[in-house]
Write a protein that binds this DNA or RNA. Structure first.
Lengths: 202, 202
DNA sequence: TTCTATCGTGAACAAAAGTTTATGATAAGA
DNA sequence: TCTTATCATAAACTTTTGTTCACGATAGAA
């Protein structure tokens, strides 16, 4: 007796997963067949069998095939603006300061508005933030002790650790770099709080 | 004169976005119409007009409608599998090891295949990689001196710095943690090279 | 108020996708 | 080697989807 090729089953599942990862659409039977050099009728047979075995789910009559992996997909992404160097006198998120938009998983971020700051300089090196790193920032005007905040100092968006001294009624911004000094302000406008960092390793 | 309801346009776009986020597939005109209490012919008309205005793209004859939002995300992201703890004896990217898929900007990754490793343990703490951090890994079987690699040691995916001693013909895997010892291998199978890391700051 | 352009609808139509079926090929068992 | 079960294919078929069309309703202008 012959039996349906298990390797082909895996190929089909892998193809669907890969195709979806690239195109964000489920391929048609025709497309699957063409890519694996089998007929779409054969694909249909295989998929019917895989449905019985629970390898594939079907939540809609058409186009509804889902591999187990597709059910694990978290495709809730949001486009977040990346801010690099700031043009003089412009607000942080002015159009001319936005370099690009990057898709970021919604699970990375909660509610609220976000932007990504491309770190420049080495003022936060001890906190692991190096020049060129991308810092995901939640827009807010207040912060808690010790959080890393984005503040506009001399028309430049800088990352510093935030401390509020209630007695002296002043704000201390602390660079995580032994060569740099703390800066004190009576009042400072906070742009947001750093929530995540994306670093290059190579 | 009457004009097409701009509010309805936004409703349609919002519905498509929400439906897609939940179901991973684009809704049909019928589904859109039913949900918004309009006929599918009307939906078809609206979508045709929105295509002209560039609010919606169509990269495939059927099912191909994409809002700008979806389109941008699709064009700029790829779904990458996240691997957490590894089931005994299974290959790294076996289905049971994949926790989820996350959309990652295409600009983060070049050619080749990638996966995301959820770091566990503190063996790379001095390189800034802490427990729970997400490490984007390019699949490859070789590495250069000093790169951070993923290797399977005792059926666990571990991150270590890679050094090859050509004279002694052995591989040294170096944990970036003063409490841990280097490990030496005659031969080791490398799963990939770490290219980026995503860390929580809060 | 009346007229007119056009918007939304339901039905018919066309296009595309999935399923079934008849057929030939072929691997496994006798 | 011969037989048989069943696998893969192509074509016909069914279902679903998107588009077009004729018609009634209605907002805006005169």
């Amino acid at each position: 007796m012959r039996s349906k090729d298990p390797a082909l089953m895996n190929k089909i599942i892998d193809f669907i997963d890969e195709y979806y990862a690239k195109n964000f659409i489920i391929p048609t039977m025709q497309t699957i067949g063409d890519s694996l050099n089998i007929s779409k009728a054969c694909v249909s047979n295989y998929i019917a069998e895989m449905k019985e075995k629970g390898l594939i789910e079907n939540n809609r009559g058409w186009y509804g095939i889902r591999t187990k992996n597709i059910s694990k997909i978290n495709n809730n992404a949001m486009l977040i603006p990346v801010v690099g160097t700031i043009a003089c006198g412009t607000p942080l998120l002015a159009e001319e300061n936005i370099e690009e938009y990057l898709p970021i998983p919604k699970s990375f971020i909660g509610n609220g508005e976000y932007f990504i700051l491309k770190a420049n300089g080495n003022s936060m090196i001890k906190a692991g933030i190096e020049d060129g790193d991308l810092v995901i920032v939640r827009q807010q005007e207040s912060a808690e002790q010790g959080q890393i905040v984005v503040a506009l100092i001399d028309d430049e968006a800088t990352l510093k650790r935030y401390y509020l001294d209630n007695k002296k009624k002043q704000v201390r911004l602390h660079p995580e770099n032994d060569d740099m000094q703390d800066i004190y302000f009576k009042k400072i406008v906070i742009q947001g709080v750093a929530v995540k960092i994306i670093k290059d390793l190579l």
